[in-house]
Every structure is written in structure tokens, then in C-alpha cells.
Design a protein around this nucleic acid. Structure first.
Lengths: 224, 224
DNA sequence: ATTCTGTATTCTGTATACATAATTATTTGC
DNA sequence: GCAAATAATTATGTATACAGAATACAGAAT
């Protein structure tokens, strides 16, 4: 008919969700996975062609990504994948730490045992991947657990900011390959976090989360 | 010539900054000041005409505002000014409180005496407006002081999130007219905040900021 | 050889046109 | 008279066309 079906078939994009969201999350993934590298200029026409969309919706997506902080827009000279300095990464980790500490405090007050149980479940699955040495699956569940923990606080604004920050850090954290001993330490911290959460032991929980994210900084600081 | 000068003359918009930023901040102001009310549908053509721009840059601006959380986009049915429930406002104040507490801790460590001096200066100007009973000027300086305080932490990511949240709350806080006694209390809290900052007395500072934002909630809770 | 200037090309920014989906109004059946 | 279905209108979503700005290139002058 028109170009839509053709495009959908040709590129495997576009299904039923809004095209805007589709482009945004597609580009987000491309940035996080390093397909589009930091500092890389994003030329609208070739990028649009590679996604199977015209410049108009692509530009709208770029504006969204700029507000999310993944892309930088220089007026008159287009879009560039944002790159983060070492200080940026440190600042973001300080911030995400504060957010997760807040989330922990709130979660201990308002989360149901059932919801906490679901986090425990995720944790168990993550441990299985750890023991199997499956880094990628471990990594994904790790992210998911942090998000779920924040979600327990029942504060959507907090969750949204946390998600935004997590997206900015994702690529960097993914790069930061930890050695076996640090991986084991991270795993132990997670174990302690879930345990403290189940006991609703706020102070311990906050302390471990603080330590956990401090260690995350130690892990990535050389990589940045 | 073309339409540009004509438009600029006709509406007083557009000078030299990027048109995108111009539209975004213009719409942001219109939302904050209640010219565009919560829940109001934003029809692209009439809104664009009132701003003197076509739909394309307007739509890009709306996408940005959606990422900032001031506008809601329902795919296929346009943009609506976002409205916040009482819980939303509470959640946001909890979050902004946590951010300002973090900022306070960091500021006590890294801020220079000179930078703190600038906050003191703003505070003095605000007190003058308070004593003169100039609500609007007071209000604006109040916001500016909170932003400056966060800026002292030297964490741009924190500042950006704080600014976004502050924008979402601006309209609501502006509505929440406090009586003379509460206004006086808020003023006293500010005085204590600046004093504690000058002494770099972290614990007191955090405590007062917490109290200050708790009171802010009490002030607006009926208004929401 | 290098730098400055003028020109050509490429890319971005905006407006407009068209197609599709949503909404409203109207008409038909009960 | 009311409800449901259908037609008409209006709004959104996407693509394209055009204008202006930025960049890259080439040639001339120092």
C-alpha cells in the first residue's frame, strides 16, 4: 500500500506501538549498546534511512533523547551522541546512590511482603546466572533488580528519574568488566540487600546500598 | 523577505536563540503560569499560530516537554497539559527534599566561601522583598536560592533533575498562598539554612531543609 | 608553504501537503 | 424519543520540498 508495511517488513521495526516510542527506544538501545558511539554525529538522513523513517519523526525522537540526556543538540549543527566524563559518571553514581537510599527507606515503610518476595525471586534467578557464569543474563537481572527495588518505594517520579540515570550509565557499567572477586563481592552485597529488605532493616539496607554503589564506582572508574 | 522577520515582529518571539528552545521555554512558562491549564488539550494548529510557528517545530517542542514531564502525549490523540494528583505532589516533594539534602551535604564539602556568599546575597535581597511584602519578587528569589543551593554541590546532573522537578512544582507552589505566619516561618527557615551553610554545619543544614520542605507540603496540601 | 577568501556542497530548520486515525454530527432503525 | 451505525469533519502522523546556515574545498595572495 503506502510505505508502512513495506518499511515494517524491510527493517523489522514498527509493529503497533507509537512509532515515536519505537524510534526513541531503538536509538536508546543503539546508544547504550555502543552501536552509536559517544561523540558520534547523527546525520538525520542516513540515520533515518537505516531505521526506515523520514526525518520528521526522527528529529522528534532526537529531541526526546536530548531531554533524556543521551544526545546533545547543537543548534544549527545537529545531534551528537553525548559522552560522559569521569566526573559525570561519578556525579551520576552519587545521585543514583542517593535515590536508591531514599527508595530503600520508603520501601521499608510501604512495600508489601508480596512485592518484596518478587524482588527475592529476581535475586534468586540472578544468583543462578551468576553461578552459571552467564554474565549477560546476570547483568540484565541486576539492572532489573535495582529498578524493582526503586519501584517498591511507590514513587513514580523517583522511578522515572532513576530509570533515566540508569540508562545513561548502562553502557559504561556494561563496559566495566569486573574480575571474579569483585563480581563475587557484588553478588554478596545483593544478597545482603535482599535480606535486609526482608527484615525491613532500614539502616543496614541503606548502608549496604551505599557501599554497593561506592564499589560500583571503584569498578568503573578505570574504565571511564 | 521570508516569514521569519514577519513572525518575529508579529509576536515578539524569536530573537537569536534556537527556535526550539524558545518554543520550549515559552510553553513551559505558559504551563507554569496557568495560561495553559492542567488537563487542557493542546491542539497543534491553533497553538502554533498563537506562537507564530508551524506544526513541525511545535511538535518537536511538545516531545521535549513530554520528556520533561510537563505534557502528556497520547499517541494518536495529541498532547495534554499534565495534571498532578495530590500524591504526585507529595512524591515530588519527597524527592526534591532528598535531592536538596544531598546537595546540602555535598555543598558543605566542596562549595567555596565566595559561592556561599552569593547565596547569602540572594537571601538578603529576598528578605528585603519579604519585608516590603512583595510576594512575586520574593517567590522568584526563593526559587533561585533553592537552585543556587543545589548548584553549590557542583553536580550538574543533580541540578538538572532538581530544575525539572522544580518546574513541575512551580505552578502548584505558586498557588499555595501561605498566610503571614507561615510566610514568616518559611523566611526564618531560610535564614537558618543560609547560616548553617556558612558554618558548614551539615547536620543542622540537612535537618532544616527537611523541615522546610515538609512545611512546604503542609502549605500546598490543601491547595492540590 | 600557509593562510585567507570565495565558492560549492551538504546538512539542518521550517513549512506545507497528504494520508490515516479520531471525533463529532447526522441519519436511520427500533 | 433513543440508540446505534454511518457519514463528515477535524486532528494527528509522516513525508517531502524549500530556504538558510554550516562546513568543506579550491584557488589566490602573501
Amino acid at each position: 500500500m503506502d510505505g508502512t508495511a513495506e518499511r515494517a517488513a524491510g527493517r523489522g521495526i514498527i509493529e503497533r506501538q507509537s512509532l515515536h516510542q519505537e524510534i526513541v527506544s531503538r536509538l536508546r538501545d543503539m546508544i547504550i549498546e555502543g552501536e552509536l558511539q559517544p561523540g558520534e554525529r547523527l546525520y538525520e538522513i542516513p540515520l533515518g534511512e537505516s531505521l526506515g523513517v523520514s526525518r520528521t519523526p526522527l528529529r522528534e525522537a532526537l529531541k526526546s533523547l536530548a531531554s533524556e540526556g543521551l544526545v546533545e543538540l547543537a543548534p544549527g549543527r545537529g545531534a551528537v551522541v553525548r559522552q560522559f566524563s569521569r566526573k559525570d559518571v561519578h556525579d551520576m553514581l552519587v545521585l543514583i546512590r542517593s535515590m536508591e537510599e531514599l527508595a530503600a527507606r520508603l520501601a521499608c515503610e510501604v512495600a508489601s511482603d508480596q512485592d518484596i518476595g518478587r524482588v527475592r525471586e529476581l535475586h534468586n534467578r540472578m544468583r543462578a546466572h551468576y553461578q552459571a557464569g552467564e554474565r549477560m543474563e546476570y547483568y540484565k537481572l541486576n539492572q532489573q533488580i535495582h529498578s524493582s527495588l526503586v519501584a517498591l518505594a511507590d514513587n513514580p517520579h523517583l522511578s522515572a528519574f532513576h530509570a533515566t540515570l540508569q540508562a545513561r550509565l548502562k553502557r559504561i557499567r556494561f563496559i566495566g568488566h569486573e574480575g571474579p572477586e569483585r563480581w563475587a563481592a557484588a553478588m554478596a552485597e545483593h544478597e545482603a540487600i535482599v535480606a535486609a529488605l526482608e527484615r525491613r532493616d532500614v539502616e543496614t539496607l541503606v548502608e549496604i546500598i551505599g557501599k554497593h554503589l561506592h564499589n560500583a564506582w571503584l569498578r568503573v572508574r578505570e574504565a571511564v
